[in-house]
Nucleic acid binder design. Structure first.
Lengths: 218, 218
DNA sequence: ATTTATTTTTAGACAAGACTAAAAATTTAT
DNA sequence: ATAAATTTTTAGTCTTGTCTAAAAATAAAT
């Protein structure tokens, strides 16, 4: 039995660990959960005892397969309910999140199955995020080069094409990491340079950078 | 803000107080909630402080108007979701209760409104129970004489036609009170007598009894 | 009208989840 | 490489909702 709170933590860890093997820090979890680091530590221990995460003190956590399945199941329900709200109950796409945050915790295998069928087995939620299948497979989000993103869009860094030390150090220096949110402020067509905004800080990058960074739109 | 537990207690009190002014005992609440009397007392105090029930020590509780509205709102949601599950997700009528017990606590005015519209403003749930309107009016359940109930049906005692002391004492003696659940085991056509089951105990009654007891089907 | 039985309330404890403040470990910087 | 800063953990407290055991109030019975 996974409690509501535990489900929310698992979901947070899932979203923070963009690559599956990546370790997630206590602070990152606390921030995402809008709580204090000490509370996060308490919960991490609980999840660890239940075999939902791998945990070593001071080293961060990893979802176990059991934990990943639990997180993905919640995300599946969340996204199915979002489709329901928009398609059947004429909600706007910006009104569905907080209601889906509640509905995602309803426990009934049959409910989820029947809802999926009723909605005609959708593959994406109203925001374009993929809906995991019943056995927990998350359709992989297509990687896109930052260079392809349109002006004014938001995206999230999910990988690199050039993984040289030089490039990685450049990214570190400018606070770009896996999971960093990037906004495209403007694009120069003559040299393909771009102005980004990273955590409210502007950054001008060359085409060498934008052609070597994978992002996903969200 | 009414918590999930508080909502469940209010619902229990609502169902126990068949007449609105009737006082409900701590023990009755504890039994309905599958908990201990001391826990019920604790919760009653909390509800009383929030102005959801009127409470005097050792005297039982009454829902206030505020408490009644809260209870009816939860019941409305419960019954709407039951209709949804049966009509849209092809659940059987006997499978809906436990899922509806979860869904009834989802907080979103818009969700309830839109669901109501989507289901075409139903007036009864799959078990025939009336669905309260958005402003908290519960359609009155029609009183039916026990004599009219078909064989093998379950019903609940909700009133008497003959309110003489003799008749009331007879009912007391046989453990029939407002709220008592009655099953019709068999009916004799030649003298209109019936065999009932009250709390697993069989009871044979005459037509004088069955023609003076109001029940509702449930 | 007292005693007996039942119901209700109090007192104290516990688990889940969160918090504060302080200690310990790790990372960064000089 | 050691000091400073940051992150993480521990220890102790709080709230919600539950429990047990005992006390107090009410109801039933002789």
């Amino acid at each position: 039995m996974v409690t509501l709170s535990e489900e929310n933590y698992l979901k947070a860890i899932y979203h923070l660990a963009l690559r599956n093997d990546e370790k997630v820090s206590t602070n990152a979890i606390a921030q995402k959960m809008q709580t204090k680091a000490s509370s996060a530590t308490d919960m991490i221990k609980k999840l660890s005892e239940k075999g939902l995460v791998d945990y070593q003190k001071y080293k961060g956590v990893n979802l176990t397969e059991k934990g990943r399945l639990s997180a993905v199941s919640v995300i599946r329900k969340h996204r199915l309910w979002e489709v329901f709200l928009v398609d059947k109950l004429s909600f706007n796409w910006d009104e569905v999140h907080e209601v889906a945050e509640q509905l995602e915790h309803i426990k009934s295998e049959k409910l989820t199955q029947q809802l999926d069928a009723f909605l005609n087995y959708p593959t994406k939620d109203p925001h374009g995020d993929p809906i995991p299948d019943p056995s927990g497979n998350m359709p992989s989000t297509e990687k896109v080069l930052l260079a392809k993103i349109e002006n004014h869009k938001h995206c999230i860094c999910i990988g690199v094409k050039d993984s040289s030390a030089e490039f990685l150090q450049y990214l570190d220096k400018h606070n770009i990491a896996l999971g960093t949110e990037i906004t495209i402020v403007s694009k120069e067509s003559f040299d393909e340079s771009m102005t980004l905004k990273i955590n409210k800080t502007p950054l001008v990058i060359s085409k060498e950078v934008s052609h070597n960074l994978f992002v996903k739109i969200n």
